[in-house]
Amino acid sequence: MTLIRSRDFTATRAWGALDIANMGGVTTRLHWADQPYEWHVNDGEEVFAVLDGTVDMHVRENGVARVTTLEAGDIFFAGLGCEHVAHPRGPARILVVEKEGTV
């Protein structure tokens, strides 16, 4: 058994992660971030759950960008081909479930 108190997790750099599990090629990682990530499209689906903090999720579809604000407890699902980038508003802790090897 492993207990992780997400509110206590801090990384040495933005988007640093704690690997929690790898279940049949699907990884679960806890990320700490205080800076934007980068625009990207995953090579699989992604579940992004904000555990602590506030994150502005930018999504671009057909060349049109929109922003959705995610608060603690909110979950974002990025389907195949979803171009997105996360911009935390200050420190945030995010649980990410995605295909192994996804950046």
Score class of each variant (00 low, 15 high):
D8N: 01
R7Q: 11
F9W: 01
A17R: 14
G24A: 07
K99C: 00
L70W: 02
L95P: 01
L18F: 00
T69L: 01
G90K: 04
T12W: 15
A92K: 01
A21F: 11
T69E: 07
V103S: 15
V97E: 10
T27D: 13
T68P: 02
G81H: 08
P91L: 06
P91D: 11
T102Q: 09
R13E: 14
F77P: 04
G25F: 03
T2H: 14
I20H: 12
V55L: 02
I75L: 11
L51A: 08
N42C: 15
W32M: 07
A11T: 01
T10K: 15
H58G: 11
V67T: 13
L3F: 09
V64K: 14
S6E: 14
G25N: 09
F77D: 04
I94H: 01
E61S: 04
N62I: 09
G90R: 05
G90C: 03
T10A: 09
V64F: 07
A86E: 07
G73T: 05
G63Y: 06
H40M: 11
V50L: 04
G24I: 06
L18V: 02
V103P: 15
R89Q: 14
V96H: 07
A78N: 00
T69W: 03
K99W: 03
W39I: 08
G44H: 04
Q35P: 09
G16T: 14
G79I: 10
Q35L: 13
G81L: 08
R29M: 08
I20D: 09
L18M: 06
G44T: 05
I94T: 02
V55S: 03
A72T: 06
G73W: 01
E46T: 07
D52L: 06
W39C: 05
A49H: 07
E46Q: 13
D19A: 00
V47N: 10
D52R: 05
G73A: 02
T28Q: 14
C82E: 12
M57F: 02
R13V: 08
G79Y: 11
G16K: 10
T10L: 07
T68N: 12
L95A: 06
G81A: 02
T27P: 08
T10F: 10
G53Q: 02
R89S: 11
V85C: 12
F9R: 04
